[in-house]
Design a protein around this nucleic acid. Structure first.
Length: 617
DNA sequence: CTTAGGG
DNA sequence: CCCTAAG
């Protein structure tokens, strides 16, 4: 049984920490002696601080409570009664510290019937919260708490960073940065606030309560509870946002969620309407909150588009995506400014990277850096990782083996050699045709190869003794002399990794035969049998090569099949017979060239093929 | 781990 | 060739 109660918290700790942070920021707070903290009573009797969400919820409950009373008058759509709200909401909430200022409570009770049930909705379950507002400070806080078990001692989880500790057990500090926001928005008249409100939410409010307005605006603008670093004013019917960089602890925690903050110096010179759209995009882009919102839209095209865009299915980010973005962030310095196309509206011109990594704490206590990303329009939290190679080192280990031939390398070599010799047929067949340049890295290793050049010579010498198997033209290419991680300059100036091993004719033939024997798709089988000697050439490689062969063979078909292999332009001349065979096999397998010339081929060249296939069909 | 596809 | 998503 859990109950949400209100507890008065000693103001000392409050002011104490406030001092440690930046006193200049929240003078008002310090002055305020009474602070309320919303907590939940666990079954065992201990007090667990409430989550931010919970706090909001309660606020909204107050709203609702009000509005239910006024329901008939206001006609607002109130979905839940305070009661069920209460029970369902708190049941899901875990222990997250939060604090609610007394004045906020007061404010709440003054609220009119306007309810943004979007917040309420997004609070329905804890997991949902994670999804919707993943990087919001509370999540990390939650971890801390769950680690320390209870929050009665605010110092427990505090060893972390100041920011975390401060916001973790807000006994110390109000991350309800409303304080700031109030200061910033304080100068505004109710009328101005109304203007902003309307621009933000697309509806007018009759609420005269400044506090409430400011709160709503702040939250709407920042899409978080943090307004600490921004000031919003209205000039000539435009929403102008001023901001200043702050390195406050609060910012460190909360900014991540703030899509607008970065736009510090950016001034929207468009009409407030546009500004509104912009903001709505933010809201939309940052999660599902918009879905259930009672916000009144101008239902014009733009809105529809925005909405539908937000409804796009969200895909889990791929590792590559994560890596690439992470990688890019490091370089990203000068931010781009607001671009609607960016959808999520990550408009930041702050010196900080686009996504600020925030520290998260896992239950085991290890910190981990997450960053907020707007993928597919929803705020998704993505681990902040650096681009490092995963999986096995690929060819690199070959190099190692090369240096330690006596142990592992040699034996395997021997085996491999034996294998190759077993099948001299193909090898010799083509081995003579193509320039032989030994030096196949994995083939012959020498003990402690001195220099690449020398190594190459040596291996070449050794190669002479053996055979003639997979030959590489790379003799001319110095960079390929050693291991597989060499790079070659490309035309466009970039460097391409060169563990590219050109497919020898031998290999191609093997592949074709393999396909002939086992059929398309049995790549691993083929590899096992026909490419046992080739340590490289994974089944995937085979598959890819087959794909290429297929393409090549069918591409060449319409022209002429009898033409000799060597086509001038072709970088890797593949004998026509082989191509023909590839074609035949492909047809047998019912394979067609991916896209091109489906018509052509069927047209004339392969009438028999059609018949044959029909037989299969 | 293997296969199928996209990049 | 690289990377992934599905079996």
């Amino acid at each position: 049984m859990e109950t949400v109660v209100e507890v008065e918290v000693n103001a000392e700790s409050e002011s104490e920490v406030s001092k440690t942070n930046s006193a200049e920021k929240s003078p008002k707070l310090i002055a305020d002696p009474v602070v309320y903290q919303l907590v939940r009573v666990e079954g065992d009797g201990r007090l667990v601080p409430a989550t931010d969400e919970e706090v909001y919820e309660v606020e909204d409950l107050l709203d609702v409570g009000k509005s239910t009373r006024n329901l008939a008058d206001t006609g607002k759509d109130v979905e839940c009664t305070p009661n069920n709200k209460c029970s369902s909401g708190t049941a899901h909430l875990k222990g997250i510290c939060s604090k609610l200022q007394s004045e906020n409570l007061e404010t709440c009770s003054n609220k009119s019937g306007e309810v943004l049930d979007l917040e309420i909705h997004s609070m329905k379950s804890n997991t949902q919260i994670q999804e919707v507002v993943p990087s919001l400070a509370p999540s990390s806080i939650e971890s801390i708490l769950s680690e320390s078990g209870e929050c009665s001692n605010p110092r427990v989880g505090v060893t972390r960073s100041e920011s975390l500790s401060s916001s973790a057990c807000n006994i110390s500090k109000p991350d309800f940065s409303m304080v700031k926001g109030e200061i910033c928005l304080n100068n505004l008249s109710v009328r101005e606030l109304h203007e902003i409100f309307r621009a933000l939410f697309g509806r007018v409010t009759t609420n005269k309560d400044k506090q409430w307005l400011k709160r709503r605006i702040s939250m709407g603008l920042t899409n978080s509870c943090d307004v600490s670093s921004t000031t919003f004013v209205i000039e000539n019917n435009k929403v102008v946002k001023k901001g200043k960089e702050e390195n406050s602890n609060i910012d460190d925690v909360n900014n991540t969620k703030d899509p607008i903050k970065g736009a510090s110096d950016k001034i929207w010179k468009r009409s407030s309407y546009v500004a509104k759209k912009e903001v709505e995009s933010h809201l939309n882009g940052s999660g599902k909150r918009m879905r259930n919102a009672n916000v009144v839209y101008d239902h014009d095209k733009e809105d529809v588009l925005t909405e539908s865009r937000a409804d796009k299915r969200v895909r889990k980010p791929t590792k590559r995506y994560i890596e690439e973005v992470s990688e890019g962030e490091t370089r990203e310095t000068s931010g781009k400014v607001t671009s609607k196309v960016k959808g999520s509206g990550h408009c930041q011109s702050s010196p900080r990277p686009i996504v600020n990594p925030i520290e998260n704490i896992r239950s085991d206590g290890k910190p981990y850096v997450m960053r907020q990303d707007s993928l597919g329009g929803s705020g998704i939290q993505i681990p902040y990782v650096s681009r490092v190679r995963r999986g096995r080192p690929r060819e690199n280990y070959m190099t190692l083996m090369k240096l330690q031939p006596s142990e592992l390398g040699m034996p395997s070599r021997a085996v491999k050699k034996a294998f190759e010799i077993c099948d001299p047929r193909l090898d010799s067949e083509e081995g003579n045709k193509i320039t032989k340049a030994g030096s196949s890295p994995e083939r012959f290793q020498q003990p402690l190869a001195s220099k690449p050049e020398k190594a190459e010579e040596n291996s070449e010498r050794i190669t002479a003794d053996f055979v003639k198997d997979d030959l590489q033209l790379q003799h001319t290419d110095p960079s390929s002399s050693d291991d597989g991680i060499a790079t070659v300059p490309t035309a466009n100036g970039g460097m391409r990794r060169k563990h590219h091993r050109i497919w020898t004719l031998n290999e191609v033939v093997k592949l074709v035969e393999g396909v002939a024997r086992y059929g398309v798709g049995r790549w691993s089988e083929i590899k096992r049998v026909f490419f046992a000697s080739h340590s490289h050439r994974t089944s995937v490689d085979l598959k890819d090569k087959w794909r290429n062969l297929l393409r090549a063979s069918f591409a060449q078909m319409p022209l002429d099949k009898g033409v000799d292999s060597s086509r001038k332009n072709a970088s890797i001349p593949i004998p026509a017979p082989i191509l023909a065979r590839v074609r035949a096999l492909a047809e047998m397998e019912g394979q067609f060239p991916p896209n091109l010339s489906g018509v052509k081929i069927v047209g004339h060249s392969s009438r028999d093929v059609l018949e044959r296939r029909s037989g299969y069909l």
